[in-house]
């Protein structure tokens, strides 16, 4: 049994904030790209694919960091339903960070398109070309992106609720390495 800590490990905090920026940028890039017929569409698409693969690699590192470092506990007086919501939403965020790049990769594979990162790097296809598979994955990619964005909004609101209204140490545990006293 490890001793309880009040803050996330420095590497966990770094990964959280770097990936927060990347994931939010990714959701906006995706939403903007599918709503554009201008050169922006191509420009954003060429950003979307390598950024997605970078997120996939980082989330694997992040999962390893999460299970190998000590995580600060939630406040003991947090209502059970809020504690459960926190736990489930964290699992959901991890699942989406892992699933979205994989679905994107699989979807391009299912379309029979070369999976290109930039103009000359090609990743292997991870599923066989098939229109039904493509259609399912393409829709899943869009719906899960909305779920991802809504979950991030809830996560943001909850974090601010902890920091500004409950005024406990939850927000601080991700913001800094030492308590303010």
């Amino acid at each position: 049994m490890s001793t309880p800590v009040k803050h996330f490990a420095p590497l966990a905090r770094l990964l959280h904030w770097v990936m927060a920026l990347m994931v939010i940028a990714m959701l906006f890039i995706g939403a903007g790209m599918v709503a554009s017929v201008s050169e922006r569409h191509e420009w954003l698409l060429n950003l979307h694919k390598p950024l997605g693969i970078a997120i996939l690699l980082l989330v694997i590192v992040r999962i390893i960091v999460r299970v190998t470092t000590v995580t600060p506990p939630l406040p003991a007086d947090l209502p059970a339903v809020q504690a459960l919501a926190a736990k489930l939403s964290h699992y959901l965020l991890y699942a989406l960070m892992l699933a979205m790049p994989l679905i994107g990769w699989a979807m391009i594979s299912a379309a029979g398109d070369p999976v290109m990162l930039g103009s000359s790097v090609r990743l292997p296809s991870i599923v066989a070309a098939n229109p039904d598979t493509f259609a399912v994955l393409r829709k899943a990619h869009a719906y899960l992106a909305y779920l991802f964005f809504l979950t991030i909004l809830a996560h943001l609101a909850a974090a601010l609720f902890h920091g500004w209204v409950r005024r406990d140490e939850v927000l601080d545990s991700m913001l800094r390495g030492k308590s303010r006293d």
Binding site: P4, K6, T71, P72, P73, L74, P75, A76, D77, L78, A83, A86, K87, H90, Y91, E169
Partner: peptide, 9 residues
């Protein structure tokens, strides 16, 4: 995954 901590001031 997340344990509860003891009450604090």
């Amino acid at each position: 995954m997340i344990d509860r901590e003891l009450p604090y001031p």
